[in-house]
Design a protein around this nucleic acid. Structure first.
Lengths: 103, 103
DNA sequence: TTGACAGGTAAGACATTACTTACCTATAGT
DNA sequence: ACTATAGGTAAGTAATGTCTTACCTGTCAA
């Protein structure tokens, strides 16, 4: 479960797209790979990164490996980004004041 | 201004630390580099990535180059992460129900 | 004007990533 | 038992990222 960096995991557009797809529910690798132009092994390797970051969990069902979204680690990202919220709000207020003063 | 990927820009711990430092206000490269064990050119290169992602702006003041935090692009990250919020909330509710049922 | 300071850029070393194809095991269906 | 399906892993390669040192320009201060 640990070992992977969430920020690094979501840095790749492919991996973000994989997570986006998994929001519709668990899916086997075959289905996930179908959406991409890259090879299935490449998808497997991206899934491995997501697994190490604990963003997905895997469980074998028959000969399929179901991947399931585990969004919890994204809270770390959310917490970090949110800590910047007051800065962009202040900038927007500053902009509003600037516009007001120019009327 | 454009060209850089925000998700990629914040993937590096060094760059996140740079942004964190800039929350205390604009700072010249010298001050930013002082906090890190890496060389000043390395910091310059990280700042370049942040500039391309429009996460910082640069302005020359005398012989110093002031870097200023521009948090707006982080809203893209926030929006993406927030779209997962209901998923982890649902999982927490599921956990709560499970715990309730075990009482 | 000469020297110290601030900082960007170039070039190269080295590590890491992201792909590919080839191969392997396990399961399902006939 | 045989064949097809599902998917992980290995090995190799190409592309990127991240440092370093060396060098350059521009600015301030004596």
């Amino acid at each position: 479960m640990p070992g992977g960096d969430v920020f690094l995991a979501i840095a790749s557009p492919v991996r973000r797209a994989l997570l986006d797809t998994l929001r519709q529910g668990p899916a086997p690798v075959r289905d996930l790979a179908a959406d991409f132009s890259i090879s299935r092994p490449a998808v497997s390797q991206h899934l491995r990164v997501l697994r190490l970051a604990d963003l997905v969990s895997e469980s074998q069902v028959g000969r399929e490996h179901q991947y399931r979204l585990n969004p919890e680690p994204l809270q770390d990202v959310r917490a970090w980004v949110t800590s910047y919220e007051r800065f962009w709000k202040e900038r927007l207020i500053g902009l509003r004041d600037l516009l007001d003063s120019g009327r």
